[in-house]
Design a protein around this nucleic acid. Sequence first.
DNA 1: AAAACATATCAATAAAATTTGATTTGAGGT
DNA 2: ACCTCAAATCAAATTTTATTGATATGTTTT
Lengths: 102, 102
Amino acid sequence: MESSYERDAKVFKALCDPRRLAILERLRSGEKCVCMLQEDMDIGQSGLSYHMKILCDSGIVESRQEGKWTHYRLSETGRESAVALLRQLTTPDTSPKSGCCG
Amino acid sequence: MESSYERDAKVFKALCDPRRLAILERLRSGEKCVCMLQEDMDIGQSGLSYHMKILCDSGIVESRQEGKWTHYRLSETGRESAVALLRQLTTPDTSPKSGCCG
DNA sequence: AAAACATATCAATAAAATTTGATTTGAGGT
DNA sequence: ACCTCAAATCAAATTTTATTGATATGTTTT
């Protein structure tokens, strides 16, 4: 079974590779197909496909098939849930503090 | 030289390991020293220290020395800048869209 | 139905991150 | 000064991720 920590970590794994951040930057200007992304990126087709899968699995990117092309775009719901998760994980909770080391 | 993608990726690297998320959860209830964190976590002292360094380097966690103890706590500015970065990386920009595949 | 094309998957390798135990550092206490 | 304790660093082994080239899948074109 996958722990909730593992599930949450997956979202951030998508963001922790510089190539994937470069891909996201390209998607900010709108939907792109693999061939378009590959164009200015010095990355092989299979490598790009590998990274796109990780981005899609995280929910941050969505894909759409059109004939033989796959188009990728940023997901608004993916973004919002990632932001919400990040906040949740890093914001102090309200319960009484347990002291430490005396 | 380190690219901006590499610098940004570092923040998310801190968040992409289930053990570090478990550590963050413990810090949500307030500042803790290493000994306290280790208590209920099935992790060795050196391993925990390794993870704490990564969390601190990312800016998400801050540390404070007190005698021979090191206390760790969530950083508010770390959180806010991580959230801002996440939003920036995943929000479409305003410039005109470049078409794709015709 | 064969050829051409876009993309995904696979398998082998290479690189990076994590774990573990041992050692070091640095702060108190005696 | 010496001992003890908390935590950091180091080095080796292991595990996880990423890269690369080859092959498979599915779609359009001829």
